[in-house]
Write a protein that binds this DNA or RNA. Structure first.
Lengths: 194, 194
DNA sequence: TTGAATAGTCAACACATGTCGCGTAAGCGA
DNA sequence: TCGCTTACGCGACATGTGTTGACTATTCAA
């Protein structure tokens, strides 16, 4: 990892091929068994070149999943808080559908042989997105005496926990989205009512 | 990792030395930079011997932290659900105090360069412990239409999320325990009241 | 106390890793 | 188009990894 101009078209192509190769390999084997050598070979890039862009496999994994993480964080922050308890809001359903489509990837990423960096990144993005939203005033009522960061971290962790449990155990995305929404929403409306 | 009798006193001594060496090294450097060679040297054990007990660094990390994980899971399952919202129950406070004492370790374990296996193990233990408790009938009211596993995974993830955020950001264990308890408890009592 | 079972040590192996310096060729500004 | 910059390929190097087989020493049972 020296300095490589990220805007150089050659560098962009190389990174794109490396990320594509990573996603292909991640579908076939555990992350811990994916080597820099195998990545370089599949991406048809010299092994030394990989280190010009990523210091290790984990960094490449995280970058390859960045779009997915951003989509999840955005969807989470878009959920209207006043949706009825019995019907999960659209963005949340779409979030779980996105995870369902890429379930094999998320299972690998969040599993025992997954990526600590990805999991940390996902929690962090979710926490930041929710904290920003709460700071904007759009925060569920009833927890004004809890720091915004804590509240955001609580919900971000809960979402990651439910996703990890769901992709490992199976079930439809509708069930998972509704279960999460009920767990969140009940506390929310109840707190407002007392 | 062939077969080694776990009860053999020689094997027990070796594992104890390896786990101690791991905890020492984990306080000094990132987990990703801890090598089997360094572990073997510090534990005064031959490098080849390490592989008789642990297939990789992550397995050793997880085993070294197993007692801590068990303590956390036990404490979480012991919390009385009817404790007042303004005062976190004893077991929860003790849980956060335990984490505070070992904050440096938890920060490493749950951070970006931490252990996916440890994080997954902790969530899993917490989920199992809570699910067992809920199955025993000691479950917060108001979520009967949510699968027990999902509920347990939600809370386990939330706890891990709060701990990760707290050890990264700082603050007293009392504050953290109370914040978590308020986040959980409000939803809980509110749900029962409607 | 003696002997069988086995955990540990040691040296050595093929392979992966991370990092060089050098040469080539793709990209960009004038 | 020309020339400078630099991403990339290539080969090589020291080090870490995971495994093996032979030897030593600890443990436990007869």
């Amino acid at each position: 990892m020296k300095g490589v101009n990220p805007d150089d078209p050659r560098a962009q192509r190389t990174r794109a091929r490396l990320k594509a190769a990573m996603l292909e390999l991640a579908l076939q084997q555990e992350l811990t068994s994916i080597t820099m050598s195998a990545l370089a070979k599949r991406a048809e890039v010299n092994r030394a070149t990989v280190y010009l862009h990523y210091p290790d496999v984990d960094a490449l994994v995280t970058d390859a999943m960045e779009d997915a993480v951003a989509a999840v964080a955005r969807a989470a922050a878009l959920c209207p808080l006043d949706a009825p308890r019995e019907r999960a809001p659209g963005p949340l359903v779409e979030l779980f559908e996105h995870v369902a489509v890429n379930a094999a990837l998320y299972r690998r990423m969040l599993g025992a042989h997954g990526s600590a960096r990805f999991a940390a990144r996902m929690r962090e993005r979710l926490t930041d997105e929710l904290a920003r939203r709460f700071a904007d005033g759009r925060r569920p009522a009833g927890w004004e005496d809890v720091p915004v960061g804590m509240h955001a971290a609580y919900l971000a962790g809960a979402l990651v926990g439910v996703i990890a449990h769901w992709v490992a155990d199976g079930g439809t995305s509708e069930e998972a989205a509704l279960a999460f929404w009920r767990l969140f929403r009940t506390g929310c409306q109840a707190a407002a009512g007392q």
